[in-house]
Write a protein that binds this DNA or RNA. Sequence first.
RNA 1: GGCCCCAUCGUCUAGCCUGGUCCAGGACACCUCCCUUUCAAGGAGGACACAUGGGUUCAAAUCCCAUUGGGGUCACCA
Length: 558
Amino acid sequence: MSDTASIVTRFAPSPSGNLHVGGARTALFCWAFAKGRGGRFVLRIEDTDQKRSSDAASIGFAKDLHWLGIFWDEGPLWQGTGGGEHGPYFQSERLDIYNAQLQRLIDAGHAYYAFETAAELDAKRKAATAAGRAYRYDRAALQLDSAQVSANLASGMPAVIRLKCPGRDVTICDEVLGEATIPATEIDDFVIRKADGFPTYHFAVVVDDELMRITHVLRAQEHFTNTARHMLLQDALGFRRPVYAHLPIICNPDGSKMSKRDKDKALRKAVAERSLTSPPAATVDASVWNAWLADKNIQLDLDAAQRLADSIGVALPEINVDDFKRSGYLPEVIVNFLALNGWSPGNDIEKFDLEFLRTHFDPRRVVKTPAKFDRAKLLSFNCDAITSMPAEEFERRAAAHGSAYHPDFMARLGPSGFTMLARASQERSKTLDEMFRGNRFLLVADDELCWEMGKQVQKAMLDGSPCGADHLEALLPILEGHASWSAADLEALVKPFADERAAGQLGKVAQPLRVAVAGGTVSPPIFDTLAILGRESSLARIRRCVTHFKSLREANTR
RNA sequence: GGCCCCAUCGUCUAGCCUGGUCCAGGACACCUCCCUUUCAAGGAGGACACAUGGGUUCAAAUCCCAUUGGGGUCACCA
């Protein structure tokens, strides 16, 4: 690690429209490590699985990377960044390169063709497992003479290429895990080119890391044992050995691996609890629904999952960076919190920004243990960030969030209403989304507001004498006689009323008012709420409420 | 199951390499009280961990071994 000027790291995901938080953290650490040492950060797309990469251009996750503030020096061209002299950066466009390297291996006797079908291998694997043995490829294809191989190839028989492993133990040196030796018996002659002509992950990684001059490989710990294979490949090809650092996995609170499948899991649970047998209207069509219910391995696409969740009223767990964005988390908070999963700068520092991470990140301070993703702490960090930002900034960012995710809300409020709501909401917002999610009553038509008789409403409206409903009724004519409707004016009007009628206990008056206009006991500060709603709307709601509770009480006394 | 790795509060972690300053520090969550027009936020307190068992040593969270527990991995996925 002495020649810091030439440090090159890479983030190498498979193509996807969304960036997973685990991937985001890997990208973050790769970026920080390289950029903090004057090096380069490369983005490479691992799209060698034709089944999964039907849409090779789908690097929608690039937007997530940019949102977090991570930009690549080299990689796919995307919104003004990318390019570079080691491209192409899509592996599917590098087949010629792999084939040339593959040929070198064949020529040198380090690799060989094999003709077993996937089904045959599968059967052997099952048999081995049933017999309680670990399956290893039996090298049957190595017995084929070269004439036979040529004939098979010439006849167009499907073939894979396997690496001929040297049969020695491999010792991995890892910056975070230290040294580990994988016994030779654990590594069989693995496939390096698939029958479809594409290289496997192992082969493409090794070739590209060499050709793209990658010096440091930071990746998730699930790749740790793969490293032995990669080292064998490097030796066979005569390549350099990059420095490895394997990052601990990020898991759910229950210890399971955080996965996009968790969304489907949550949905299946909700569907089962509600005993739904057919899909709610306008969510997914019946055939998809049936297939999904029948097979736990089938995942709904993201949009369909979201529609279904909205329809049955369940919150999907946030898994992708975009999910957290939608939930109203700030990118700088995500960056901060993600970095804290698996790494810490020491000295009891835990609030920091991207720039701090860039200058302080060191893989040697990465912990070895898997981290459980603690949403409560993330939420707390987000709250701190929101409540400490300047009011104008909060307003601007909340407006952007609202326009993207709650256009109906923005339209209903109008610019001045939005400003009032934003000002009233900042100090009680843990996310940018809360002011929208929590104030649905603002969207309800005045004559459609309902008052559900929960314990809190009961207490606010009917307990004591005079009760809240009495106060409300007395207050109504005073409000009706008042033209000005600013929060300050309303406060100046209601405070004296409370002093006189409720012994100065503003709550005795504010709560009934709140219930009247919001339908429940939770809203922004009451005078702000009234001002946001406006005079006509507020009065209409209060009148209806007075009537509503009056008839309710009459019915009860009868 | 084979192999590899790991093990400090419920959670994220500091400390471990270079044993003594650690009857273990911070943060989130939790509990209590205060403040309060709701909900939050805020203020003040509090409870909470070195997995277990053996060594080594004058001395171990720190070094060694075993056990137990957890994770990862064993594909023509990446």
